[in-house]
Amino acid sequence: MEAFLHQVLAGLATGGIYASLALALVMIYQATHLVNFAQGEMAMFSTYIAWSLIDAGLPYWAAFALTVVIAFVLGVVIERVVIRPVENAPVLAVVVVFIALLVILNSVTGWIYTYTIKTFPSPFPEQPLFGIKYMSSHEMGAIGVTLAVLLLLYAFFRFTPLGLAMRAAAQNPESSRLVGIRVGWMLALGWGLAAAVGSVAGMMVAPIVYLDPNMMGGILLYAFAAALVGGVDNPGGAVFGGFLVGVLENVLGAFVIGNELKLAVALVLIIGVLVVRPSGFFGKVYVTRV
């Protein structure tokens, strides 16, 4: 029982990370109906930047904040420079560009930082927090950080005029232009935010999986699964899906199929959801009257 509880809690911690990345995917999906295959590599690249900053002597949280800002700018620049020209291109062209981005970020990171695995610090103490023994302090801290990010995002989209404009631009670009919203920039902002959220996920997962250019491959897959389980156009569902996938992965990996088949959980979930219920289990059904 204790072991089970431990696995569930550890699952929640990684689940939070999947949730963040899934949310990043959903944000871009909602605005463009595209799934960003490079989302994981963007997060990985940002995490390396954080590593450099910490390595240069910056205190952890300063490096954290600076990384989030840099990731945001990177996201905006990528949208403006690389994605914009294929905005209205066929799906295949866009997918190819995403894959190109994945490959470029991966190889450039390998070029700059080598493929040697690096450790990445956790900002949380070694001793368990509050004397809770089922969870490491990093796991608890990661859950806390994830929840804080999710709350901030929710507040931003729900209560600020800019957040409202971004939601409007995502669902009805033409009407948005007619009220004066600069739709192109809203898309770029969306990419920036997604990249920023992804960078947090990267920094939270790096102490667990260590830092290497391929660290995000599997995690991206779990994030895909999370986004699909939750409904790829539903941010709340994606977050729930993230936690669910995290717990499933840990519990199944520990007790049922063994750790070496963990990725198969993601594969089965992705194909299963896509075939059985493409709108996800929380996918919105829009009510419209004409």
Binding site: G218, L220, L221, F224, A264, A266, I270, I271, L274
Partner: peptide
């Protein structure tokens, strides 16, 4: 693309 990507990764 997503489903086949998952196949390739896993």
């Amino acid at each position: 693309a997503l489903a086949t990507f998952a196949l390739g990764v896993s």
